[in-house]
Nucleic acid binder design. Structure first.
Length: 646
RNA sequence: GCCGGCGUAGCUCAGUGGUAGAGCAGCUGAUUCGUAAUCAGCAGGCCAUGGGUUCAAAUCCCUUCGCCGGCUCCA
């Protein structure tokens, strides 16, 4: 082979010779079959810019803008363009960092005054100019020391700080126009590659995410390979806003907040309270059939007890305290303490274990004011909390049972979820042996079920490792709901024991776990998940009887009475309004069924149901309708819930 | 807690120094109607709260409370 040539292998195995020193871009252009839109490439697996020249035989693969990696590169490059625009418009601005994130990108700036909406528009316009100019994006490398000097001269203190934390002897830069940014790359070859972007919002953010550091201004934006993708994403955001649980909570009259009551405290209106009641009844039944015991503990417990449990030392800033008869009491932020005392109320034998205590426990936590968020983050909430005390050798089995429980319940609600295992953090207590055993039990349970999971190193609680289940909301945000936590300390601190087969005292192991998590949060996620259109078994109003004229009011009243007797949650709309008006209203309230009652129905002694999705059903008797609802409830709950849950 | 924005009728929102507005919802009446809005009239606000500037404040400034978008933290 000619020494002026190199042999390139494409990802599909094809080989082709090219002149030595040719750019990856040209190779891909010659070798590509599809119309893929490449933004970068891999040479022998390593990500590089398209302008990189290839000097030796290599495996070359294009990274297209619609792949995950390609999209990330595109967005990262767009972040650079934004920073360039900001520096042009606000020369005094200092740049911090600007990565690609899940749905776009951001860049942090230190500026004298915060950006306004008008600023965003100006920045966007400037970015469009930069993109239209198709400025080349060039990579350079420099010794780290030299780079530090360079940014010091520019007055870019944040870049200097970043460089000082690096260990690599050389670092890379990317330049487009006059704008130079410290960056690992790769990037698009020229700014013209950005086809569709939008700046979304501006918000404060701490330098390096540390609240002790300076508050910077962060601009969020997003970019897509084409306008269509961007449009779809913006539509998604608009749709998500429509199903925001705070908006739907108001529209469907489910719950509210009041500044007279205080931040983070929910008031449940009749319909919201009814949904909650159904959830709670469902949960009590499900726990009883799985061998849990229902227990109830007080809200106020003496501060001395919180000292003993370690909460006073580790969780005090989140707790509320009060005084009764010169005794200090703490409002419970967790339910475990009374459960511990129930266990300790008598001598336990190994034959009693495992003991599973379940409580719909209402707790209070002093969350920082800025984090409150509708039902998803509140200060008073009710957990479907349980504490399982068992022998170490029962741990595995118990964890598996809980996982089955979680999966079954999530299946009924139809949720997407992700699981994470959090392992031992730096600051923790307990022996390595305990931690290993518990962590293995958690991992083993998930693997035994073939459930994918991520490991979060060092993210566990100080008292034990845990599995967290994250649900996805309408905006694609993750919310922690179910969690399973091992605990070695509380049994220790409360000196819990059981008498083993050998007649000696042994220490039980404890599991904390919730399935829905906080009822408030779960309800919030649920509202967004269903967009307010609850399935029949959960709908606070399952049907609205609508009369055509006043002539049917008496009969409609009898129908409603009959349905209520059969356990149907039905309302009567006998207002003097046109049928269409009443249908529209019930539709907007997302009631599953509308029962039309006109003269025909009175004559036939039946009702004419119309489904929420617009499907018109045959005339039927009230009894047949109830049977239909019963069936629908059972079908969507794996047979668990029928009409008479409340 | 921090940065920024915001708070006007039950709801959605106009009003930016000179007498508080609209639509929907509500009430009253008419209409008695067949699957997403019948018509007319009436009523409804200490412009979140407390203070200040001004002849005059919903409007400008400050305090507190609350909400929204993030950061940090978390079920």
């Amino acid at each position: 082979m000619n020494s002026q040539e190199i042999q390139v292998t494409f990802s599909d195995g094809r080989q082709q010779a090219f002149p030595r020193g040719i750019s990856v871009q040209e190779i891909l252009k010659a070798g590509q079959k599809s119309k893929a839109n490449f933004v970068a490439a891999r040479i022998d697996g390593q990500m590089v810019d398209l302008v990189r020249r290839v000097e030796t035989d290599a495996v070359v693969e294009g990274i297209s803008s619609d792949s995950g990696e390609g999209l990330e590169i595109l967005r990262h490059s767009t972040a650079h363009i934004m920073a360039q625009a900001v520096k042009m418009l606000f020369p005094e601005a200092k740049v911090a960092i600007g990565p690609a994130i899940e749905n776009g990108f951001y860049y942090d700036f230190d500026v004298d005054r915060p950006f306004t909406q008008e600023d965003l528009e100006r920045i966007e316009a400037k970015m469009k100019e930069i993109i239209a100019a198709r400025q080349a994006v060039q990579r350079r490398e420099m010794a780290r020391e030299e780079a530090i000097r360079f940014f010091q001269e520019q007055g870019e203190q944040y870049k200097v700080e970043l460089l000082e934390s690096f260990e690599d002897p050389t670092v890379s830069f990317y330049q487009q126009g006059d704008f130079v940014d410290l960056c690992r790359g790769p990037h698009i070859p020229d700014t013209g590659f950005v086809k569709a972007f939008k700046l979304i919002s501006v918000a404060g953010a701490y330098w390096r995410g540390d609240e002790h550091n300076a508050m910077l201004q962060r601009i969020y934006g997003t970019a897509f390979p084409d306008r269509d993708g961007l449009k779809k994403y913006l539509n998604f955001l608009a749709e998500a806003q429509k199903r925001d649980h705070r908006r739907l909570g108001k529209e469907l009259d489910l719950f509210s907040f009041s500044d007279e009551i205080g931040a983070g405290m929910v008031i449940y209106h009749p319909k919201g309270a009814l949904i909650r009641h159904i959830l709670e009844t469902f949960e009590k039944k499900e726990h009883l059939r799985r061998g849990y015991h229902l227990v109830v503990g007080p809200t106020l417990l003496k501060t001395d007890l919180w000292k003993r449990s370690g909460h006073f030392d580790n969780y005090r800033e989140n707790m509320y305290f009060t005084e009764i008869d010169e005794q200090s009491y703490g409002v419970k932020p967790m339910n475990c303490l009374s459960h511990m005392l129930i266990y300790r109320s008598k001598i336990r034998s190994y034959r009693d274990l495992p003991l599973r205590y379940f409580e719909l426990g209402t707790v209070h936590r002093h969350e920082k004011s800025g984090v409150l968020h509708g039902l998803l983050r509140v200060r008073q909430f009710t957990q479907d909390d349980a504490h399982i005390l068992c022998m170490p050798e029962q741990l595995n089995r118990e964890i598996q049972n809980i996982i089955d429980f979680v999966i079954e319940v999530m299946g009924i609600f139809g949720f997407e979820y992700e699981m994470e295992i959090s392992t031992r953090p730096q600051k923790s207590i307990g022996t390595d042996e305990d931690w290993d055993r518990a962590t293995d039990a958690l991992i083993g349970a998930l693997e035994g079920k073939g459930i994918p999971y991520e490991i979060c190193q060092g993210e566990g609680a100080f008292y034990g490792p845990k599995i967290d289940v994250k649900l996805k909301d309408a905006l694609d945000r993750r919310w922690q709901c179910a969690t399973i936590q091992c605990d070695f300390t509380l049994p220790e601190r409360f000196d819990l024991s059981y008498i083993g087969v050998d007649g000696n005292r042994h220490r039980p192991v404890m599991l904390h776990r919730v399935i829905l998590g906080a009822i408030e949060r779960f309800l919030g996620v649920l509202i967004e998940h269903y967009a307010g259109a609850f399935p029949v078994w959960l709908a606070p109003v399952q049907a609205v009887a609508v009369t055509v004229t006043d002539a049917q009011v008496e009969f409609a009243g009898k129908v409603c009475d009959a349905l209520r007797d059969l356990g149907v949650r039905v309302d009567l709309d006998d207002r003097n309004e046109k049928l269409g008006y009443k249908i529209r209203e019930a539709q907007l309230q997302k009631v599953p069924y509308m029962l039309v009652i006109g003269d025909r129905e009175v004559a036939a002694e039946g009702i004419c149901p119309r489904r929420r999705d617009g499907v018109q059903m045959e005339l039927m008797s009230a009894q047949d309708f109830a049977v239909l609802l019963e069936k629908e409830c059972r079908e969507s709950t794996k047979g668990r819930v029928g009409l008479n849950i409340i």
